[in-house]
Structures are given as structure tokens and as C-alpha cells.
Design a protein around this nucleic acid. Structure first.
Lengths: 339, 339
DNA sequence: TTGTAGGCGTTATCAC
DNA sequence: GTGATAACGCCTACAA
């Protein structure tokens, strides 16, 4: 019913060396594939190490070499439930795929603000060689200044400008929002609302700005704004508010697909037809766009590719290359049924 | 447009000691809150350390103390996309919440088999003090024998018995499946199919066994089985096959909600009414049960609580406590509209 | 091609 | 209460 965890003393380099009849240096070199080691020695050492079940102690290795060969992917969201966002998951998939191909090991962490301290210390304690931050859904705070202790790449423009600046990759949020709204205008819509994210977040602010600009250049007032929180619940609440206060709405641009899908649901339940009565455009072209009750027209964003790109960037930085501070990925309108 | 990553040499204990006018030992003790250090010294050292931005080097710390204060949560799934499973995410949330409250740091890793080697080495290299394995959706392979190098707790009975055995927490899969099928029988259904997971996985096999047993004791043949892969796609395909080959089906027990929801969708599209023509019962009571086109009747499983429990168990093992090998959590039928 | 020796930044065991 | 002084397990010049 219960058992002791065995002491399980793992073999050290020293022990392998003794067993193989050589010195630690030789074993180290053989196992790390360094040049100038005889093939015979390599083979022999490998066999002995394998037989003994030797696994190098990573802490010792990091300490001695000043590198950990690990990269952290930080999700600065309150909880693991943030993983409900398909865009985020896609970015993670891209990062993961790219890092897998490298010699580095990926190490995910969800940073609820409560324990930010713990994570910040971890990230700066030398056990990861670089950090990837994925999310435009929350403030970055301390993460913004992490980069003078360890290389960092953001997905989504950081919430604040810093000196020196942070590396990041992002879409042209304002531009994309403009395209979305223009599409709605092209459909003859004149009362176009937006469901956005918290204003102090870059992606939210920029998308709202794009919406506003497009309306302005069409000579229309930009008065229909509801702030959501990127979740289905928040999106639904925002849509209900908008509908209550402005029953004449005929178009909606939501800052992400999850909120757009929720908005569609609210509209249908309120007896509005989508897109006949109200046309809806989302953002991300994530899986949420397809599973919505009316398949969403949306601004596509290469989420998975973005993940690969940010991983790539970090890898290059770690390799000592010079890389651009910002990388912009393409976005384009994907037409489906909702608009 | 580009910039150099600064050398950024971090202060060491040594440097803090010099600055504070004491020795490394004292600084170490003061910072780690050890007894027998004068309050004045503690205060002084803390101030100096903070001013210098000192962050202990975790590699050195682990090496010297033989403990890393980190725990890994391994998701042994082919890709990050496994995160689409709401049950898994709930387990993760539970684990995360529990570990956050401890002194340990949680460290997620997705283990596609391709890089199993990399992760296995990581897990046994001394940089994590314990391992949590979350998923009954794939074979465990090497993970099964990890426990003679580092403490491990599984969520879901491991696919194979080992000696010594692995710690795990799980629901009574066969029993729960029996309850589900009995419910269908109680509704007068007689042609009850099951959509299961790959047979070599514990949760799948046990649930199918429970389904089979319940039918047997009702004197009915257990001939309607379709194997899915826990995903919506797999569930839909399985349902289509069942429907083609056995148009007389009037009940379905799916091994998880995601497949059940997909099955409902296929049934509706085929013109069957749910639950009037075909009653469907799922498993997990995850968010997928609520978002299905017909809200699902399902066998609830305390996913988040399971996560907390497994974290708890590991923490206790690390604290040197004796704990039971297996922990069974409760499951019960949740009635909604689908059956 | 291989061995020698010092050091990476902490903790921990002694004395003082 | 604080200071020396070994480890901890590995890497890496440098020497041979």
C-alpha cells in the first residue's frame, strides 16, 4: 500500500571514468561529442555510460558551462485556463515544434501574478538561457525588464516601450482592424461596434485604434465600444450591453474569435440574423472561428508560424546573431458566413 | 533596428558578502531565513542584496543542496494540441494551483515521443525533484520506470504494472462506465454502443470493460464498439461507422465528452433526435459537455480536484511521508438533456 | 589524443 | 552568531 522512494544514487562522471579506465575529462569530451577524441574511446565510454545508466547532472553542467540549454515559454495569464484560447495554443505549438528541433529544451510556465516573484527569480536564476513570452492578453510588468538579465522575445508588442527595447513579433493590429472594418463598410454597414480587450493591452488598443480610424475615414462616429476580456463570457456580456444600448447595430468587429463567437451566439439568441441583420468579423482565424454557430469571417493571423518565428529569433539571439527588434507577420481577411 | 544583448554579469553571493561586510555563509543563512542569525544582520544583508539585484544561481544551489525545488508536469501527448482536451486542462489547473501554494516551482513539458529522450534525460538530471504525469490518452513507455530515479505520480492508472508500482490517482473507470450504461438501460435502450479510446490505454480499456459488463448483466450482447482517439474528429468518425453498420442503435456511451459531443453532432446531422432516437452519455463532465449541441448527460469526474490531489501526493512524498499507491476519486452521473 | 587542475556559485560542517 | 573550508558534478584551459 505504500513504499519508500529508493535512495537511488545516480552515477557521476567520476564513476563512469573509473569504470571506463579513463579520466573525467575524457568521459566528458566523449559524451559531448567533442573533436579530438579517438573513435575507440568514444565508443567505449558510451557503452560504459549507457550500461551504468549515467545521466549528466544538469545543475552541475549549467554551473560549469554557464549555459542551461533550456528555454522558458512564459504564459503571463492568471491561470492555466488561459489555455482555452486557441490562438495561444497555436503559438505554443509553433514554439514547441521549433524548439524541439534544436538542442534546447522547452519549459512552459504559467505566471499568475500572485507568484510572479517565484517565476521571475526562476527566469533570472540561470536555469534558462532565454525566455519567450506569449500573450497579449495581460500586462507584462516585470517581464518588460527581464531582458537585461536574459534574452527575451515577446509574441505581441509589449505593453510598454523600454530602453533598450524588447524583441517582439506581432501582426499589424491597427491595419488588420482597418481591413476588417472596411469589409463591414463594404457590406453597407453603418453602425459598426467593436468588442475589444482591456485598453491597456497593446493588441486591444491597436485594434480599437484601427477600428476607429476606419470609421473616421468613412465619416462615421466611433461611438460603439464595449470592453471584453478575450473570453467567451466577456464577449457575450459585451455584446449584450451593446445590443441593449444600441439596438440599431448592424456590424461588429471583435478583437478575437472567441469573443466574436460568443457575440454571434448572443445575437442569434436575441433574434438577430447573422449576417443579415448584424455582420460579425473576428480576429485570429483560430479554431474558434470554425466552431462558432455561424462560421466566422475573421482576420487571419499565422499564430503557429508566429510561434516558430519567435523561437527562431531567440535561438538566433542565443547563437550570437544580430536580429531585428520587431518582426511583423501578415494578416488577411478570411471570408466565411458571418460577414 | 538591432542591438547587442548586454553581458549582464549578475552579482554572486560572494559579491553581496563583500558589499555587506560579512562572509558568504552569513549571506546565505540570512537570505535563506535560517535560525541563529541576528536580526540586524538579516536586515542589512537583505537590503544590500536587494540593492544589488542579487538573484541566487539556481544551478549552484541545486548542486550544493541536492534539491531543485522544482516539479515537472509532463503531458505525454504528441503535441501541444492535446491541450484542446478540457479534462486535461482542468487537471493542469488543479496541479498548478496546489504547487503555487508550495515552495516548489511548476514546470510544464509536452513530451511528443520524438523527443522523449530529451525530456527523460531532463527529468532524471536532477533539475526537478519530482514528476507529475497527466494523461491517460497515450502510452507511458519510459515514464513507467522513471520512478526509480525520481518520485513520480500519475493521473490515471499507468498503462502497465511495474515493480515497484507507480503512484497514481484515478476514478473507478469500469464502475463509472457501468453506471452510465445502467442509466441508458433504465431509459429502455437496448442497442447501446460505445465509442472508446485505443484499447491499450487504461482508461479506455476499463471503461469499455464496464460497458461490456453492464450489458452482459442485462443479458444483452456487447457488439457495438467503435474505437476513437479521444478527439472530436475521431469521435465523429466512430459515430458515423456505428451508424452505418448498425442503424438500430438507440444508445451511445462515449469514453469522453469531446467524442460524445462529436457523436451528438453526427447523429443530429443524420436526422436522429437526441435523446429521443439515440440517447448519449459522455465522460468527464468537462466544458465540452456544456458546449455540445445537446447538453450532455455525463459521468462527472473531479478533474481539477484530481490535479490538486496528485500534486499533494507528490509534495507529501517529497516531504518524506508514506502515501498510498493508489487514490480513487469519486464519479457520478450528471443528467442533462442528451440521455 | 588524454590527463591535470582549477573553478562555476551555493550549501553545509566544522570551529571560533 | 559568524567565519573558514570542503564538497556538489561537471567543464575547460593548459600541459603532457
Amino acid at each position: 500500500m505504500a513504499r519508500q522512494t529508493p535512495p537511488a544514487r545516480r552515477p557521476t562522471l567520476e564513476m563512469v571514468a573509473a569504470e571506463a579506465g579513463v579520466t573525467r575529462s575524457t568521459v566528458s569530451r566523449a559524451l559531448n561529442g567533442e573533436p579530438d577524441v579517438s573513435q575507440t574511446t568514444i565508443a567505449h565510454v558510451r557503452v560504459v555510460a549507457a550500461r551504468m545508466g549515467y545521466v549528466p547532472n544538469r545543475a552541475a553542467k549549467s554551473l560549469a558551462s554557464a549555459r542551461s540549454m533550456a528555454i522558458a515559454l512564459v504564459i503571463p495569464e492568471p491561470g492555466v485556463l488561459a489555455l482555452a484560447d486557441p490562438h495561444l495554443v497555436a503559438v505554443m505549438a509553433g514554439v514547441s515544434r521549433r524548439i524541439e528541433q534544436s538542442d534546447y529544451l522547452l519549459n512552459l510556465m504559467v505566471a499568475g501574478d500572485s507568484e510572479n516573484q517565484k517565476i521571475m527569480r526562476y527566469l533570472t536564476s540561470g536555469v534558462v538561457d532565454g525566455v519567450l513570452v506569449a500573450s497579449q492578453h495581460s500586462r507584462h510588468d516585470a517581464l518588460l525588464h527581464l531582458h537585461d538579465l536574459v534574452p527575451v522575445v515577446f509574441s505581441g508588442r509589449p505593453t510598454e516601450e523600454t530602453d533598450p527595447p524588447n524583441y517582439f513579433i506581432d501582426v499589424d493590429n491597427a491595419g488588420a482592424a482597418g481591413v476588417a472594418v472596411s469589409h463591414l463598410l463594404g457590406l453597407g454597414r453603418r453602425r459598426i461596434a467593436t468588442i475589444t480587450g482591456p485598453e491597456d493591452m497593446a493588441a486591444a488598443g491597436d485594434r480599437t485604434a484601427g477600428w476607429r480610424a476606419a470609421l473616421a475615414s468613412a465619416g462615421l462616429p466611433a461611438d460603439l465600444v464595449a470592453v471584453g476580456d478575450w473570453t467567451a463570457l466577456g464577449g457575450a456580456a459585451a455584446m449584450r450591453t451593446l445590443l441593449d444600448e444600441h439596438p440599431d447595430i448592424d456590424g461588429v468587429f471583435a478583437a478575437n474569435d472567441v469573443m466574436a463567437a460568443a457575440a454571434v451566439s448572443v445575437l442569434l439568441d436575441a433574434g438577430r440574423r447573422v449576417p443579415e441583420d448584424v455582420a460579425v468579423v473576428g480576429f485570429d482565424d483560430s479554431s474558434a472561428a470554425l466552431s462558432a454557430r455561424v462560421p466566422l469571417t475573421t482576420m487571419s493571423q499565422p499564430s503557429e508560424r508566429s510561434g516558430e518565428l519567435m523561437a527562431d529569433l531567440l535561438l538566433r539571439i542565443l547563437a550570437g546573431e544580430q536580429v531585428p527588434i520587431s518582426t511583423v507577420v501578415e494578416s488577411h481577411l478570411v471570408r466565411r458566413e458571418s460577414a
